[in-house]
Design a protein around this nucleic acid. Structure first.
Lengths: 82, 82
DNA sequence: CAAATATATCGACTTTTCCCGATATGTAAA
DNA sequence: TTTACATATCGGGAAAAGTCGATATATTTG
């Protein structure tokens, strides 16, 4: 999922409800993941709590996008501690 | 353990049977880890199969050391894919 | 070769993680 | 304000990972 969210336009061409400025909504990710709605929702909330993604509620939808700065920090952390 | 093996001299001052050119023997790691011998042995063999450490049998002892090139490769992999 | 020591392997149990269905909550449309 | 839709939360079962004790294998020493 984190990989997919690198290029939302490419990986979620079916998302029509909105642009991608806030990322991708749960339903889209679920469809692509082939897991149940609850599983995907929980997984995304874990990633969010970890700070790797950010969520934006727009109407009934929740959009998730990568928090790139967190990935950069993580990358550096790994690079310097591995 | 991987962290410990970065600086064997520092982290395993009790190892007297040999120098550190081949790394640290299982018993030393076990003592420091506070886990059973079987657990540590299995864990080390997993790390070895993963290519992260290398083993050298010297007499009745098996020494393990980090495979730094594997860590570098992993670091780069993570950096470019994260 | 028998005993002692170091490590490896095996089978079982425990803990954690993964994933699901059911249900609750929040929002929009009729 | 009822209904429909999207997402979140909850409780539980299944799968995986972690850990152990018992035992096997390898090596050295007497």
């Amino acid at each position: 999922m984190l990989e997919w969210l690198k290029e939302p336009e490419l990986n979620f061409p079916d998302q029509i409800t909105a642009g991608f400025e806030h990322g991708v909504c749960v339903g889209q990710i679920q469809a692509k993941a082939g897991l149940t709605q609850s599983t995907v929702s929980e997984y995304l909330s874990i990633l969010q709590r970890a700070g790797l993604i950010e969520s934006t509620r727009v109407g009934q939808w929740t959009y998730y996008k990568r928090n790139e700065s967190a990935f950069e920090a993580l990358s550096k952390l790994i690079e310097s501690n591995l």
